[in-house]
Computed example of a mutant assay.
Amino acid sequence: MIAIFSDTHSRRGHELEGEALATAREADVVIHAGDFTSPAALEAFRDECERFYAVHGNADSAPIRDRLPTETVVEADGIRVAVTHRRDGGEMGLAMFGRSNAADVVVSGHTHRPTVVETEDCLLLNPGSHADPRGNRPGFAVLEERSDEHAAGKTRLAGEIRQPDGTLVESFEYTVPAGTNTAE
């Protein structure tokens, strides 16, 4: 299982609680799409997660920007994930970023709004913010590869966006186009 977070905006720590904290601790991989705001928040995430990958966001301080890339690609659980905080050009810019990185999924943040969009080439996933939703539902995402004996040669992804207490916001499935993207 891959757990996905973004936009923590904390001076104190990771601000994880309830199901969000349990998921971060249990996940095979944790991805964060930036805007920790403080080194304390970044270090708190690193302390909770065994395999942790992150990018910096526009609100991150210089000590965080110096330690984290603007974008990264993570291969986990048979899924290739391109991660960025935000991209010019909206959904089209994110889809182009995914295509250029042969990604199955593009994870982004910045809007604080949980969003899932299926494009021709990849799935666009914004988990929202678990700690600072700014008028949106608080959220984080989980993503898993599912075997599908009916779709030979294709990878099927199943995911959920949840509130920190575990309440389901949205569930989704995505079938990666055959012969494209999927990590070997």
Rank of each mutant, 00 (worst) to 15 (best):
4 I>K: 09
4 I>Q: 13
5 F>M: 10
6 S>P: 03
6 S>V: 02
7 D>F: 01
7 D>T: 08
7 D>H: 05
8 T>V: 07
9 H>Q: 08
9 H>V: 03
9 H>L: 01
11 R>I: 00
12 R>Q: 10
14 H>L: 01
15 E>Y: 00
18 G>P: 05
18 G>K: 14
19 E>V: 00
19 E>R: 15
20 A>P: 03
21 L>R: 14
22 A>R: 15
23 T>R: 14
23 T>V: 03
23 T>Q: 08
24 A>L: 03
24 A>W: 01
25 R>V: 02
31 I>P: 09
35 D>S: 05
36 F>Q: 09
36 F>I: 04
37 T>L: 04
38 S>T: 13
38 S>F: 00
39 P>K: 13
40 A>K: 15
44 A>E: 11
45 F>T: 10
51 R>Y: 06
53 Y>G: 01
54 A>I: 05
54 A>K: 06
54 A>T: 08
56 H>A: 03
56 H>Q: 05
61 S>C: 10
61 S>T: 13
62 A>V: 13
64 I>L: 11
65 R>I: 02
65 R>M: 05
66 D>H: 12
67 R>Y: 00
67 R>D: 00
69 P>Y: 07
70 T>N: 04
71 E>F: 09
72 T>A: 09
72 T>Y: 02
73 V>S: 05
74 V>C: 03
75 E>W: 02
75 E>G: 01
75 E>T: 09
76 A>N: 11
77 D>S: 14
78 G>I: 06
81 V>D: 10
81 V>Y: 03
82 A>N: 08
82 A>V: 06
82 A>C: 05
82 A>S: 09
84 T>W: 00
85 H>K: 08
86 R>K: 09
87 R>W: 02
88 D>H: 10
90 G>M: 09
91 E>M: 11
91 E>R: 06
91 E>G: 08
97 F>L: 08
97 F>P: 05
97 F>E: 06
100 S>Q: 13
100 S>F: 12
101 N>E: 03
107 V>R: 05
107 V>I: 11
110 H>R: 10
111 T>W: 04
112 H>C: 08
115 T>S: 13
116 V>K: 02
116 V>C: 06
116 V>N: 10
123 L>S: 11
123 L>Y: 02
124 L>Y: 03
124 L>W: 01
124 L>R: 00
124 L>S: 07
125 L>C: 12
125 L>F: 04
127 P>C: 06
128 G>E: 14
129 S>L: 06
130 H>A: 15
130 H>W: 01
131 A>H: 11
131 A>T: 15
131 A>N: 14
132 D>T: 12
132 D>W: 09
134 R>T: 03
134 R>F: 04
138 P>W: 03
140 F>Q: 14
144 E>C: 04
144 E>Y: 02
145 E>H: 13
149 E>P: 11
150 H>R: 15
150 H>L: 14
151 A>M: 10
152 A>V: 14
152 A>W: 12
153 G>Q: 10
154 K>H: 13
154 K>V: 05
155 T>A: 12
157 L>W: 07
159 G>Y: 03
160 E>Q: 15
161 I>Q: 15
163 Q>L: 01
165 D>V: 01
167 T>A: 14
167 T>K: 15
167 T>G: 13
171 S>L: 00
172 F>P: 09
173 E>A: 11
174 Y>P: 10
174 Y>K: 07
175 T>F: 07
177 P>E: 11
178 A>C: 02
181 N>E: 12
183 A>P: 05
